[in-house]
C-alpha cells in the first residue's frame, strides 16, 4: 500500500494546549515559527525569548530552550543570550505593546547594534492581555478601553509604524511585514520567517518579521470579521512587504 504523508504534527511546538482565544492569530504565527525551526534543523539550537503579553506563556509552547523576559526587554535579553551563545538560533516573540511602547528603545538599539537575532513582532493594534487598552499601534478612531471614543491624533498621536521606523536604522539587515489572514499570505509569512533565520544563521545581523495579527476578543468581533477588519483597516495603514533587505542577495546597502 502506498501512503503519502500530507500532514505531520509540528514538533517545533510542545503538546501543551494554547492559551490563546479562539480565532486569535497568535496560534498561526506560533505554528509557522515551530515549523521553520524544525525544517531548518534549528529547533535543537534555538533559544526563544518570551515577552509580556498574551504570548507570555510561549515558553511553554515552543519546543526549545526558552527564557521569559520583562515587559519590553526581550531584545536586550536576547542580546545577552546571543553574545554568549553565538552559535544558537535566538528569537524574541513580542506584541505591539511590548515592542512598540515600553520596549521601543531595546528593539531599536538591538537593530542599531546589528545584533544577530530574529525578532517576531505581533502587531494586533491593541493591548490584548490587559484587556484591550490603546497601543501605540492602535489605528486612528479605533475604539479601545482607554480610547473609548476612538484614538485621536491630538493627544494620542498617530499609530507607530515600526518596520518603516527600523528601516531607517543602519544596523538592521532584514525587515518584512506579513499577514496571516489567508493561506496565500500564511505561506508568504512562512517564507519571511525562513528568510529571517537564514539571515541570522549566515551571521548577517538583525532581522524582524512584523505580523499583522488579530485580537477578536478585544476588538469585539468574531474571528472571521477580525480577519476582514485587519485586511480592510490595518493593511492599508501598515502595508505588507519587505522594508529593508541589506543581505548579500538583497543588497539594499
Amino acid at each position: 500500500m502506498n501512503t503519502k504523508t500530507i500532514y505531520q504534527p509540528n514538533t517545533g511546538l510542545t503538546d501543551r494546549d494554547f492559551t490563546y482565544c479562539p480565532g486569535c492569530t497568535h496560534g498561526i504565527i506560533h505554528k509557522l515559527i515551530g515549523e521553520v525551526l524544525v525544517e531548518k534543523g534549528l529547533i535543537d539550537q534555538a533559544i526563544g525569548v518570551a515577552s509580556v503579553g498574551c504570548s507570555v506563556l510561549s515558553y511553554e509552547f515552543f519546543n526549545c530552550d526558552m527564557q521569559q523576559a520583562a515587559h519590553g526587554r526581550a531584545p536586550a535579553v536576547a542580546t545577552g543570550i546571543k553574545r554568549v551563545r553565538p552559535e544558537s538560533a535566538v528569537f524574541t516573540y513580542q506584541g505591539d505593546g511590548d515592542l512598540a511602547s515600553i520596549g521601543l528603545a531595546e528593539v531599536v538599539h538591538a537593530a542599531h547594534r546589528g545584533e544577530n537575532m530574529t525578532v517576531i513582532f505581533v502587531n494586533n493594534a491593541i493591548y490584548g492581555m490587559t484587556g484591550g487598552q490603546m497601543a501605540p499601534t492602535t489605528l486612528i478612531d479605533q475604539k479601545t478601553t482607554t480610547s473609548p471614543i476612538g484614538r485621536k491624533k491630538v493627544g494620542a498621536g498617530e499609530p507607530i509604524r515600526v518596520s518603516e521606523m527600523l528601516a531607517a536604522v543602519p544596523g538592521a539587515t532584514y525587515l518584512e511585514r506579513v499577514s496571516v489572514h489567508d493561506p496565500k499570505h500564511i505561506r508568504k509569512a512562512k517564507k519571511a520567517i525562513e528568510k529571517a533565520f537564514d539571515v541570522q544563521m549566515s551571521k548577517q545581523g538583525f532581522s524582524m518579521i512584523e505580523f499583522i495579527s488579530t485580537c477578536p476578543i478585544n476588538w469585539g468581533m468574531n474571528p472571521n470579521d477580525s480577519l476582514n477588519w485587519a485586511v480592510e483597516n490595518m493593511i492599508p495603514y501598515y502595508p505588507l512587504g519587505v522594508y529593508k533587505d541589506a543581505t548579500k542577495e538583497g543588497g539594499d546597502e
Binding site: 533559544i47 542580546t79 545577552g80 553574545r83 551563545r85 544558537s88
Partner: peptide
Amino acid sequence: VFVQAESEVAAINMVYGAAGSGA
C-alpha cells in the same frame, strides 16, 4: 564579551539573558 548597553535597564536584562544561558 563586552557590550555598552543603551541603558541600565537594557544592561541588566542582557545580564539576565546571558546568565540564563549559563554565563
